[in-house]
């Protein structure tokens, strides 16, 4: 028996709006430790990992591990019926293949789960989520890849289009900067990755969920873009960099 009750449907709505374009169908794996979802996009170039902890729910009962295959667009459409302040309850009986009052059809999705090594990163940047979203959107109008370079001074975004190039440099702020404007950098060594902007722009749909975004980079490894949600936990997006031919 699974019974989840969330007092603020708005948060779940924002979570779904931020992932439904990247991934169409995915398994919600619910256990006593929380609900997690890990899925790759159709091109298998990007991946997302979502964790919703039990203490973010008003009521969380999960008698045994259950995996619910869902079409995220249907789930997002269904949740649109709830206003942000509504309470949403998700029930799933072990045997049945539907959830809650909306009788949403569950699907059987064979998804391969990937193991993400908790490796260290050469550079970790924390910056305002809205600034990162605006930079990705603006650069997306000029080129389709962005070179993100981190040095101890700051983080630089460079893109080259047919008619022009754009270079945005965000300087690291002093420790006294207000949290919502702070740009902090932990760095072992300078690192630079070239990434497809359309995926980064898709990741920034999660901007409403968090004030800050954490960008973790290691040369030649997937970039990790993480939005920490104050009560629920996190959404992490992974994107493989482009490598020179």
């Amino acid at each position: 028996m699974l019974e989840l009750r969330l007092t603020r449907a708005g948060l779940l709505k924002k979570v779904l709006e931020s992932i439904r374009d990247l991934v169409t169908d995915a398994n919600f794996d619910c256990a006593a430790t929380g609900c997690s979802l890990q899925a790759m996009d159709s091109s298998r170039v990007a991946m997302l990992s979502l964790l919703l902890r039990p203490d973010g729910f008003e009521h969380y009962r999960c008698d045994r591990n259950i995996s619910m295959g869902m079409n995220l667009a249907n789930m997002a459409r269904m949740l649109r019926c709830a206003s942000d302040d509504d309470t949403v309850t998700i029930n799933a009986d072990d045997a049945q293949d539907k959830i809650s009052d909306y009788e949403m059809k569950l699907m059987h999705i064979t998804s391969e789960n990937l193991e993400i090594p908790e490796a260290g990163y050469e550079a970790i940047v924390k910056m305002p989520a809205s600034l990162f979203a605006r930079i990705c959107k603006d650069l997306g109008t000029i080129g389709d890849t962005v070179m993100i370079s981190v040095t101890k001074e700051g983080i630089q975004f460079f893109t080259r289009g047919d008619i022009r190039t754009a270079n945005i440099f965000c300087r690291k702020t002093t420790p006294v900067a207000k949290e919502k404007e702070a740009i902090s950098i932990e760095m072992e060594k300078p690192v630079s990755l070239t990434l497809a902007l359309r995926y980064l722009i898709s990741f920034t749909k999660a901007t409403p969920l968090a004030k800050q975004v954490t960008i973790s980079m290691s040369y030649g490894r997937p970039i990790v873009v993480e939005y920490k949600m104050e009560i629920m936990d996190h959404i992490r997006f992974y994107l493989v960099p482009k490598v020179e031919e």
Partner: peptide, 14 residues
């Protein structure tokens, strides 16, 4: 524009 590898090149399936 560089080569785009798959994410499964980096994270092995469990």
């Amino acid at each position: 524009q560089g080569v785009q590898l798959s994410i499964t090149e980096f994270y092995r399936t469990t």
